[in-house]
């Protein structure tokens, strides 16, 4: 470590955690999920952001400020690394969402199975209306 990195922005503290392993449930969403850009094209919608983006911002903010569970800087660093590795090529804000879920699981704030079960429940609920 020290002054030999390639990039001016990466400081030593973050450079130690480059091994990211994929998480099955998120991998499935990455592969199968339809991103906002595609939905817009299909349905002729022009809104640049998906409606859930602002809720995602709210979650990130609440995790940093209210919970102190995931400080913004740490979330952003993890997001940067994941965006260049596992979630490379995923557009924004889908990428931010995958990275957030990944980081929360990685930090043990909830489990992968727990998330999978919840996704199933939420999916049933949203699709039943």
């Amino acid at each position: 470590m020290g002054g030999t990195q390639d990039n001016p922005d990466i400081n030593d503290a973050k450079n130690t955690s480059s091994e990211y392993t994929s998480i099955a449930i998120l991998e499935r969403i990455r592969k199968r999920g339809r991103v906002w850009g595609d939905l817009c094209a299909q349905y002729g919608v022009e809104n640049p952001d998906p409606p859930w983006k602002v809720c995602l911002e709210g979650t990130c903010e609440a995790l940093a400020v209210q919970a102190c569970a995931l400080p913004t800087l740490e979330r952003r660093w993890a997001e940067d690394e994941l965006s260049e590795t596992l979630y490379q090529g995923v557009p924004f804000p889908e990428r931010q969402l995958l990275a957030l879920a990944h980081t929360l699981i990685q930090r043990g704030l909830f489990g992968e199975d727990e998330l999978a079960r919840r996704i199933e429940k939420v999916g049933e609920r949203l699709n039943s209306v």
């Binding site: 470590m1 020290g2 002054g3 990195q5 001016p8 922005d9 990466i10 400081n11 030593d12 503290a13």
Partner: peptide
């Protein structure tokens, strides 16, 4: 100064 980074800093390497 080129101080050692211990745990955490916001001083960019490119300015040292």
């Amino acid at each position: 100064k080129d101080l050692p980074d211990i745990f955490y800093t916001r001083c960019q390497v490119y300015t040292r």
